Computed example of a mutant assay.
Amino acid sequence: MNDLLASISAEPLNVAAVEAAVAGPECGAVVLFSGVVRNHDGGQPVSSLDYAAHPDAQIFLRRCCERVSTESKLSVAAVHRVGSLTIGELALVAAVAAPHRADAFAACSLLVERIKSEVPIWKRQHFVDGASGWVGL
């Protein structure tokens, strides 16, 4: 699994690169998840986000990808953004390829849930009124 794509990036995310990391002629389905910065949370308007990652976050991300790949026997990939993001920017792109769609959907859902719960990346939301707050600390 040396060529597994699992990375943390300060640069804008490339959906096509994540898809290409898993796609192959044996796969009839590629499921992509794009986590996008939205303009609200909990009824409050959001103006932007900052993502901060633990220095070992990429190791945790790789482990999540490896485990889901091993359990599902499918190709998986994920890239998570860090730094300051504006509304509409991609924060996470995850992909799973499989011979059939149901397996790809299930594995992609599992991958995203594990990333959100196991990878030490924290989100600070900036609200339109000037307030800010950390999520998931």
Rank of each mutant, 00 (worst) to 15 (best):
29 A>M: 12
21 A>M: 00
120 P>I: 11
60 F>S: 13
74 L>Y: 01
130 G>P: 11
11 E>P: 02
102 A>F: 09
61 L>Q: 07
109 S>E: 14
78 A>V: 11
116 K>W: 08
78 A>F: 03
47 S>F: 01
116 K>Q: 13
126 H>D: 08
111 L>Y: 14
133 G>K: 05
132 S>A: 09
16 A>G: 13
133 G>V: 00
59 I>P: 03
40 H>V: 12
55 P>T: 01
94 A>R: 01
34 S>K: 13
84 S>E: 13
98 A>M: 07
85 L>W: 06
127 F>I: 08
65 C>H: 02
137 L>F: 02
37 V>L: 11
21 A>K: 00
65 C>D: 10
29 A>W: 05
81 R>C: 15
26 E>A: 11
24 G>T: 09
132 S>Y: 01
19 E>R: 07
52 A>E: 14
107 A>M: 08
70 T>M: 06
96 V>G: 07
49 L>T: 10
98 A>F: 04
83 G>C: 09
13 L>W: 00
13 L>F: 00
1 M>Y: 14
74 L>K: 00
23 A>N: 02
105 F>S: 03
100 H>W: 07
86 T>K: 12
114 R>V: 03
91 A>E: 07
97 A>P: 03
46 V>Q: 05
112 V>N: 00
103 D>H: 04
91 A>Y: 03
126 H>Y: 06
44 Q>W: 14
74 L>A: 03
136 G>R: 08
75 S>H: 03
15 V>R: 02
101 R>A: 06
56 D>V: 11
83 G>S: 05
27 C>Q: 06
37 V>M: 13
17 A>V: 06
56 D>H: 10
94 A>M: 03
87 I>V: 09
98 A>D: 08
113 E>K: 15
115 I>A: 08
116 K>R: 15
122 W>V: 06
25 P>Y: 05
66 E>K: 00
6 A>M: 01
69 S>R: 02
29 A>Q: 07
137 L>I: 05
123 K>S: 07
25 P>F: 01
6 A>N: 09
106 A>K: 05
40 H>M: 12
26 E>M: 02
26 E>C: 09
90 L>G: 04
9 S>M: 12
117 S>T: 15
54 H>L: 12
27 C>I: 05
86 T>D: 09
78 A>C: 15
57 A>H: 07
79 V>Q: 02
17 A>Y: 05
80 H>E: 07
98 A>H: 06
134 W>L: 04
78 A>G: 13
66 E>D: 14
121 I>A: 00
8 I>D: 03
41 D>E: 13
63 R>N: 12
137 L>P: 07
14 N>R: 15
126 H>S: 11
63 R>H: 14
20 A>Q: 02
62 R>C: 14
